[in-house]
Design a protein around this nucleic acid. Structure first.
Lengths: 245, 245
DNA sequence: GCAAAAGTGTTGTCCTTACACCCATGC
DNA sequence: GCATGGGTGTAAGGACAACACTTTTGC
């Protein structure tokens, strides 16, 4: 095989020094922002801090940080989650990358949005730097950077995703009642669902384990508690085929 | 409102110089790679070039380029598509960002994958730099960089997406027969479909316009030709609700 | 007339929807 | 005993899957 394809024979010369090529590329700062959803009091919430930046004057902001030099994006997202909440056994998904040159007041910063769901109760916020706290998604006002837009995109992603994957269970306690489950879906999808049909639906999926316990301390007839059967779900994951638009 | 929250009162000081903050961030080269699918001879194809890099010795590579300093990612993707194929009236979607520090032999390069579908016939390849050409997706071997992985991810994205959105029509001529449409779905989803049920399905959607023309030059009974009714589709876009996993 | 694909209906099954009453508990 | 939500069944309609024969054209 010819080692030296020449410029004369090829439309473009083979590039031998890949490092020099990369060195010639423009470089930009890259961050990860985590949209961490929780569910509490029948409301979808999101974990936010107050922005450090003076220009934003204490407006709310997502949990974000730079991506380190040799760090993968996924790793950066897990690191941020861990640093901010202490959790590390959590699901995280990359949603989209945002690149508006004006999205950061300090100059161009590209950011990759990750989405995560976690159970508010499992996670008693111990760190309160920058007023880390849960905020209702439905009443968010303007936020620092383009973070409102990022949350909107992630919220739509969640609405779609939760219908096709059992994500919701990450937002609930390990043991939950069907009422709680339905409240969750109603809140996230922003619709009302028929209670009987909802229960029938989940009964027919056969993915809930009846653990033979009842709710405690409710001011009405207590409901049965269930766990989600993740094992069975993983085994029978369906390949969904159905043209529909 | 206090303008000077001090370090003494706040867990973290407000940062006044956003530009200095950003300047302190690590910076990385950022590229866009376009996965451009086409359909020809009942096969899904993808537009590839031969890599410029000597280390890859002519292996196949996606169409990619750096993101310019003040350029949006979407704009970069459209620019690449335009530069390489001459097309600019095309749909493009961001799929995912890839960040493995070893994905580029010249050092760390982050890349954002975009996916596009275009009609092979509308686009007679005039530019043949670096052997720009269509390649069957089903028989791709190893490729330069992590481009095989990127294509795999985009292919899965396409399989899902085409079931929920009328993307497929971007791959077909403006006028197409039901047979062609079915072949397209069968090829992309890699399944067989019942012809009668397939036709019934599309008939019931009522999104195909019967243009009262027939196929020409086929060695068998010619089929009717249709156009897709994009206008009607846009008007009636459904909000799909249905928990299913 | 033969090869190749177009075109077309029915049936059973399953899933979804709509809808109303009694039950268990806390107060 | 009353308020609150828990728990349950059925009937109708719609979507999907399975399935075979006749028609049209090129050669």
């Amino acid at each position: 095989m010819k080692k030296n394809a020449t410029m004369a024979n090829n439309p473009l010369p083979a590039i031998k020094d890949a490092a020099a090529l990369v060195a010639s590329y423009p470089k930009m700062p890259l961050t990860v922002d985590c949209v961490i959803f929780g569910f509490e009091e029948n409301e979808l919430k999101v974990l936010l801090i107050k922005s450090d930046l003076a220009v934003y004057n204490g407006q709310l902001s997502l949990l974000g940080d730079i991506v380190k030099n040799e760090e993968e994006l996924d790793a950066a997202a897990y690191r941020i989650l861990k640093e901010r909440t202490g959790m590390n056994d959590v699901f995280l998904d990359q949603v989209r990358t945002f690149s508006n040159p004006l999205r950061h007041p300090g100059g161009r910063v590209i950011t990759v949005a990750y989405c995560s769901l976690l159970n508010v109760r499992h996670h008693e916020l111990k760190i309160h730097d920058n007023d880390l706290n849960w905020h209702k998604v439905s009443t968010l006002k303007t936020m620092a950077f383009d973070h409102k837009e990022i949350i909107d995109v992630c919220y739509k992603w969640l609405q779609k995703r939760i219908q096709e994957h059992p994500l919701g269970f990450n937002l609930l306690p390990e043991k939950f009642s069907l009422r709680e489950l339905q409240n969750l879906y109603e809140a996230i999808l922003d619709i009302r669902l028929d209670r009987r049909n909802f229960r029938k639906k989940f009964a027919s999926m056969d993915l809930l384990i009846d653990i033979d316990e009842m709710e405690q301390d409710v001011p009405h007839r207590p409901g049965k508690l269930y766990k989600f059967n993740f094992e069975k779900y993983e085994k029978n994951k369906k390949k969904w085929i159905g043209i529909d638009f």
